[in-house]
Design a protein around this nucleic acid. Structure first.
Lengths: 212, 212, 212, 212
DNA sequence: CATGAATGAGATTTCATTCAT
DNA sequence: GATGAATGAAATCTCATTCAT
């Protein structure tokens, strides 16, 4: 029994070892530039061993994405931990996401890696996993919105819908940062970004602000 | 007189021939999967000939993107041509974008191709061109917002900023359609999408809606 | 008749135009890096036209070599024009060759281009031409040696043989300059070079220096 | 114990297999005409495998050159092994070099491959290696000259300088064999060659040869 | 004569994946 | 379980040469 446990533990360790290497390489060179050979070298394992723990390259990146989402979750989570005002929570969420997209640029690309290109077929178990990790982030936003609704700031009956909208909005805009040298060359990106968040908050707010 | 002209015309035709082939391949297999060889075969030209008309693969896709942006422009433009209400214009813009992202799924991916992955360095002339084509679309939205501001619906002094926000929002959300089987499996994507547009419009509207 | 003449003259001009371009490109980029397309562009002619005047790439370089040999001839010729002492003539010949190999490095490579690699089959007419141009250089050395023999400095009955030896010696050594960073990294190349010339002169000199 | 050893041995064997193929191809077609694909085919290996053992084409040829220099070393070494007279040693060195340049014509071209064309940048470790192999040959000549100096035949204080001169001389002249159908068509090349050696020896000898 | 578009083989290099040990 | 050598297709790009106009 102890043996079995150790085996299992070691197996998990190897997996992490590989993921650590993959993560490091991706952070350094970007998603597209990383090969299995490079990962193997970095992990100080043989190429064959990689395939013992992962079906293929795709699976590594998919698993990596869980990590990325977890990191993002943590960043957002930390950012809003001690904040009370739901509107401020949303602002800080967006801010943390912004910082994340700059500081962990290559991780941000991992998210895009699975978002952008032609349909990647996930094996069902991965689909579920990513689901879970993504939902955790979503739930942070959902919570903030629900609090806002309860506190009477927001006018919504479907917090999740709103949360997805926020996420889509800020993620989409953050991709547009790439346009800062072309279409947006005369604009302050961060100002636009912040504006979008305010716009979202305002759109969420109760319409009727009584004016006598 | 005729000779030089014809030469020029034929040259332009070849260029189109290549772009047609590239577009067809991209539509069928997606951006990442297409190679120069495949394009050459499809265009019934030799590989060398491709390089006679385009510096490299990147340039083909970049040129393709101009086409894509033009198509998108046309779709949106047509959709809002005969509409007067600025708010309805925005709704129809978003709707047209949504349809575009479904019907021309692979074209939508071409836009993402240049948005998502690791920095692609454009030669300056291409940068300018894409700039122009992207701005044309943006200006459609800008115009609608400005009309709305003039008509007293919207409360904004920077229409471009708002237009970028809208574009980022709907583009970002449309990418999330990919999540419809995972995170969004219990939600109606189109409903969320429409909601986000309404949210944007509301966020843009004058706050003070007199009551009583 | 005048027409025929002009035609002929123009034809020769075109040839020179091509050779000028080829020479310029070779000087700038080196023998191996130059393509017909580049030459055509530089000469402001079409690729097809090049092939109207030269059978193939090889022929261009071969013809170019004549030029190179002529240039070398001129350099040596000028260097020794006003010198009387045959031994000094040889020294200056070697010195001019040395300078030539540095200043016109790429031209020096043209000579090697036909010297080094596997047998290049010259068309007979080119063979003769190069023969002539090479012989002109050789004859400069021959003359100096013969003068030296006549003046009683040198002890030889076959000046041409000696001239070839000198040429081979200094040409061979000049190629060794490439080794200055490896095998010769601790040696002063020019000193070795000069020494070889002195050695040659000494070897040529009358053995019997009477010593009582 | 055996396993690791065998692996290593096999790996070395593969390397040799590749070098053998490369050498064979070079011998048959010359340095410039050989491609990686051809080498792979000859070696009955896949192209990818070649790149498993050598960084690039250059490295193969560089390694090959070490072999060539070793072979040349061996030929010279054998030729002078049992000779005492330093002057005869030099003669036999030159003779062996001459034979080598005829019998292993393509090998001789490998040496030229790295001598003649536009600067090839060696990775430092190869530079050192070739350095070593070249120096071994040089040292053979150096030794002969030093012996000659000690025996009172030669008048020199810098044997290495003289050795380089000899090497450059005979190597340069051997390249000129290519001219035997043009410039040297009326001359006996070998006679010239031998003369150059005698000239070198004489140039090296003490001037004062007592007469009467 | 002149053009220059077109060819298509060929060059180098990379890389996901397999499989015998 | 682990290894890592081997594969070989594929990718991008170049270039000498031809030929219809």
């Amino acid at each position: 029994m102890g043996l079995k446990d150790r085996r299992l533990r070691e197996k998990e360790q190897r997996r992490q070892q590989i993921l650590d290497a993959a993560r490091a390489m991706v952070l350094q060179y970007g998603v597209t530039a990383v090969s299995i050979q490079q990962i193997a070298k970095k992990a100080e394992l043989s190429v064959g061993t990689i395939y013992l723990y992962f079906e293929n390259k795709e699976e590594i990146f998919a698993t990596l994405q869980e990590d990325v989402l977890d990191l993002l979750y943590e960043k957002i989570s930390t950012a809003i931990k001690s904040i009370d005002d739901p509107r401020e929570k949303i602002r800080q969420t967006a801010y943390a996401y912004n910082i994340f997209s700059i500081k962990y640029k290559q991780y941000f690309d991992i998210i895009n890696y699975f978002l952008a290109p032609t349909e990647i077929i996930f094996p069902p178990n991965l689909k579920e996993k990513i689901d879970t990790h993504g939902n955790k982030i979503l739930s942070l936003i959902v919570q903030a919105i629900e609090e806002g609704a309860k506190a009477g700031y927001f006018d919504t009956t479907n917090a999740k819908k709103c949360a997805v909208v926020l996420w889509g909005t800020i993620h989409g805009l953050l991709q547009f940062r790439k346009l800062k040298n072309t279409i947006l060359k005369n604009d302050d990106f961060d100002e636009i970004y912040n504006y979008s968040v305010e716009c979202f908050i305002k759109g969420l707010s109760k319409k009727t602000i009584a004016v006598r």
